[in-house]
């Protein structure tokens, strides 16, 4: 053999192992890329499935995050309403206001005169006749208390309790239950989106895994020959890993596209909703980091699918 080599002058040995390893990867990546281009329609469908599977949870998480951000802004100055005893005069109410102002965590306190409150009530409801038939004004003086922005839910509840203990205060209303409900709803949305992501990710792994299984079966003869002439499982597996990686990454690009379009479509109605709460519209559009995350997720899931499928099916194919 050495005689033959020296006679022809042809290179006598392969590349060093690490160089050969990189070379095999480059070859496998190129071959996988070419295979993807050979069947654009069926591969597009696979990419579309992955795109939808990633876009749905991404959309859910994006909306939940945006709404949560708005709620936090709403949450910062919630109003506490202090209804004073009916016997409390305007002067006493003014003194109670001073007491409340001295409490920590208070930004502002407005004294609402009972007569002004009744006038506003009458104007707002149009119940002029009914009000005129009353012998006296049934409304008490009240205080609108605005806590500082840094006072959070637990602090508000403590404040509610403290203010309720003041002499002359009949009732303290902290109207934050709707906020809690909205918070719980967005938490639910976020959790649902996360669970959806896990289910969809499993779906992607199984769908792509099955597609790759068909690819492995279609190339059974090639795999047998490769194994017979000295290629191991790693060599046979490599093109499938790249196929999974590329398909998954393209699925991530598709997910970005779908998610971006959906966010654009949802932007107007969501912003209208925010404006009802005097909030600055803030539904995010797709940003570059989302694009990277979706592509990375798609590529990662594609790689996992390919690895799972190759481990399951490739090792079973042995030369006869």
């Amino acid at each position: 053999m050495s005689n033959q080599q020296s006679a022809t002058g042809i290179g006598v040995r392969p590349r060093p192992p690490i160089s050969a390893w990189f070379h095999h990867h480059r070859q496998a990546a190129q071959a996988s890329y070419e295979k993807l281009l050979q069947a654009p329609a069926s591969n597009f469908l696979t990419v579309l499935v992955i795109g939808v599977a990633l876009a749905l949870p991404h959309l859910g998480i994006s909306i939940a995050t945006a709404v949560q951000g708005q709620i936090e802004q709403l949450d910062s100055p919630p109003q506490l309403s202090l209804l004073l005893d009916g016997t409390v005069t305007y002067e006493e109410a003014a003194r109670i206001r001073e007491q409340v102002m001295r409490k920590p965590g208070i930004a502002e306190v407005k004294l609402v005169d009972r007569d002004r409150a009744l006038a506003e009530f009458t104007a707002a409801t149009g119940l002029q006749d009914l009000v005129e038939r009353l012998n006296s004004n049934p409304l008490p003086h009240s205080l609108w208390v605005y806590p500082k922005a840094n006072v959070r839910t637990a602090g508000l509840e403590q404040l509610q309790s403290d203010l309720g203990a003041l002499t002359g205060v009949s009732q303290v209303i902290l109207d934050s239950r709707w906020l809690k409900r909205l918070n719980a709803f967005t938490d639910l949305l976020r959790t649902t989106a996360s669970v959806l992501f896990l289910v969809m990710a499993l779906g992607v792994v199984l769908t792509l895994g099955n597609t790759l299984r068909l690819g492995i079966e279609a190339r059974r003869d090639e795999i047998v020959v490769i194994k017979l002439i000295g290629g191991g499982n790693a060599f046979a597996r490599r093109p499938f890993l790249y196929t999974g990686l590329f398909t998954g990454a393209l699925g991530g690009v598709m997910a970005s596209l779908l998610s971006g379009l959906a966010l654009m479509a949802l932007n107007a109605p969501v912003n209208r909703l925010f404006e009802l709460y005097d909030q600055v519209p803030a539904l995010p559009s797709l940003v570059l980091s989302d694009l990277f995350v979706l592509i990375l997720m798609g590529a990662g899931l594609g790689l996992i699918s390919a690895w799972y499928s190759a481990q399951l099916h490739l090792t079973r194919i042995q030369p006869k």
């Binding site: 042809i10 290179g11 392969p14 192992p17 390893w21």
Partner: peptide, 19 residues
């Protein structure tokens, strides 16, 4: 194919295959 598996350079693959 066997040369690719063994990790030969493209130049060597070409020359050996033709030979």
């Amino acid at each position: 194919l066997p040369l690719e598996i063994a990790g030969f350079t493209q130049r060597d693959v070409d020359r050996r295959v033709r030979a």
